[in-house]
Design a protein around this nucleic acid. Structure first.
Lengths: 349, 349
DNA sequence: CTGTTAGCGCATTCAA
DNA sequence: TTGAATGCGCTAACAG
């Protein structure tokens, strides 16, 4: 069963005929109002109104001008996660702002990991692509590149032919880790998933090189460097993986860690959400921050300020706008986004 | 400055020529692979590969077949709010699921309240529209109707010619209010904004009829009926409006209410987020739930379960899928969505 | 200010 | 299984 046909369209030609003008005058009425006399304009609009003409057909228009005036945003994994992640929300809002200002649309291209992902990219009627951070081996990246349109990846991986927008995650993790691990003896990392399978796990001495998500990998590398600089062997650092970026799961995972014989005394978390879970678990265990347990988050969202979290500040919204400019084929202010460590009471001084 | 021209497109005709076949054989290779011989297919794909042909042009295809295979989702107010609202996220995920299954795209149409909103609707290359709940007087509704495509409004307002999906907010508020206000003497309502201006305020005996957002209006009406049934005059019921659907603001507003000489002993909130703020304010004031203060939320999100909130359960995700089916021109399972009151420890028994 | 011409790239006919 | 013709609805480019 095919999709129901669109209702019989009224065409510009019909409007023009009823108005007693040429098709071009009708077209100008919609596209270059200044070039049409007041009377002609009135006649065209009256005719359009009588016929119920809703304006030029977008597809025909796109074909004719060779541009759809729409940007495509590729969101991987489950859309649930994508939309529920407050940082992704800010990012999308940044894109939407630019689109709205330019009169552009914004098409969400959900990627499920199934075989038809590439197909969905190929059939997308968009002028440019923005890819939300994904894994090194995601075939969608090649599909996007094959479209030969302006395209940008947020976060990573870096792909030849595609622009890249994001912060230096390694440097930021190194800096945040330095604060988190200062004076600690048994630091731990609360990490995003290490593989597409999103498996929760706890291990130590985790080799970052095996991680396919570049953002996660670089942050692990940064934390490792920070541990080394603090005189702590990476092999002694626990890495606990949360399948979801979710305070509840982080709380549970942290509670388990804290119940161990030698519980961690510092946790560097890859998001404020995860850090919030750590804070809650610490409270439940009767620990005092930062002396019993130091905690750092990531993103400097509203939660971080509320909880007094030391965290990595970055603006996903600004990164979204930068991506949008690149996807429009314009030069953005910069592709290396700024970041900083915001120190609050959750870490030792 | 015009948008940068798309890169010179390789056309199907060029591919066909290089492959030594007709244009139609090339077209069939992409659209009806079964109708093309293995050799012809191979020749076409080889030629496409050599030329870097990325597949049929989506705009041309849409024009030809009269369908864009894309749904438009109209999101009002600030996109920040839209994306940050977890319920909106579920709703979008529900739509995205259906779109992904059908091979459809999903275009976000941000509506800013400016004059060009209608224009953005008119130029959207979509087969159907889904409008996220808005105010009675939103001009976007008329713009959508004028497109004469399948269209559905979520939540409200009801518009002739557009389908409507949502729960019976009045009945649900009456039921939730009955539980919230049971045994209470000074009930209050924590409400969404009453006007587009999103002004925070506290008043009593607020006339629901003046509220332009149908969802908010109907909930107020339901709460009023519940108050009446509990023997409490509506004029004695405080209605506190939060500008944002945000626990932090709700906490602050509630703290103010609780500091009054005759503080409320029951609060019916229009979302779990707002209710969470109430719970926090109550905790800070040293009040015990439900005896000192009864609280109800709305949506039965993760927060509600965590906090033991009595709340109105509904599935925004299912409502999203229902909207998607309607916008595709298919009949959904139902347009009147189910709801129920989930009783937990935050209300009196 | 208005009109004529031409064709964007493709897929639905219909014929071979 | 393949191909030729046709036009989807519109607007750039150029006359008048």
């Amino acid at each position: 069963m095919r999709p129901p046909a669109a209702p019989k369209r009224v065409t510009l030609a019909q409007v023009a005929e009823l108005a007693g003008v040429s098709v071009m005058t009708a077209s100008y009425t919609y596209n270059r109002p200044g070039r049409v006399s007041e009377q002609a304009r009135a006649k065209v609009l009256a005719a359009a109104d009588r016929l119920g003409y809703a304006g030029p057909d977008p597809s025909a228009r796109s074909l004719r001008r060779g541009s759809t005036r729409t940007l495509g945003v590729v969101l991987g994994e489950h859309l649930n996660y994508a939309f529920e992640d407050p940082q992704a929300a800010s990012f999308l809002a940044g894109i939407a702002e630019v689109c709205a200002g330019r009169g552009y649309g914004m098409t969400i291209l959900p990627v499920t990991g199934a075989a038809d992902d590439a197909e969905r990219i190929r059939t997308a009627a968009v002028d440019g692509f923005i890819v939300w951070t994904t894994s090194d081996d995601d075939p969608v990246l090649e599909a996007v590149r094959a479209m030969k349109r302006p395209a940008v990846v947020h976060g990573g991986p870096a792909v030849r032919g595609l622009a890249l927008v994001g912060i230096d995650n390694r440097a930021a993790a190194r800096a945040a880790g330095a604060v988190a691990f200062a004076g600690a003896e048994r630091p731990a990392v609360l990490s995003f998933p290490l593989s597409r399978e999103r498996i929760s796990s706890v291990s130590s001495g985790t080799d970052p090189a095996g991680v396919l998500f570049p953002v996660t990998r670089e942050r692990l590398e940064g934390y490792r460097q920070a541990a080394g600089a603090a005189g702590i062997a990476w092999a002694d650092v626990l890495v606990a993986v949360c399948a979801r970026n979710d305070a509840a799961e982080a709380e549970q995972v942290t509670a388990t860690l804290l119940a161990a014989p030698e519980p961690p005394d510092a946790v560097a978390a890859m998001s404020d959400q995860l850090a919030a879970g750590v804070v809650r678990a610490a409270g439940a265990a009767g620990l005092l921050l930062p002396d019993d347990l130091a905690v750092t988050g990531w993103d400097d969202g509203a939660v971080a300020a509320e909880l007094g979290l030391t965290t990595v500040a970055q603006s996903l919204r600004d990164q979204g706008t930068a991506c949008a400019y690149l996807a429009l084929g314009e030069k953005p202010v910069s592709t290396a986004a700024p970041w900083s460590v915001v120190r609050r009471g959750s870490t030792r001084h």
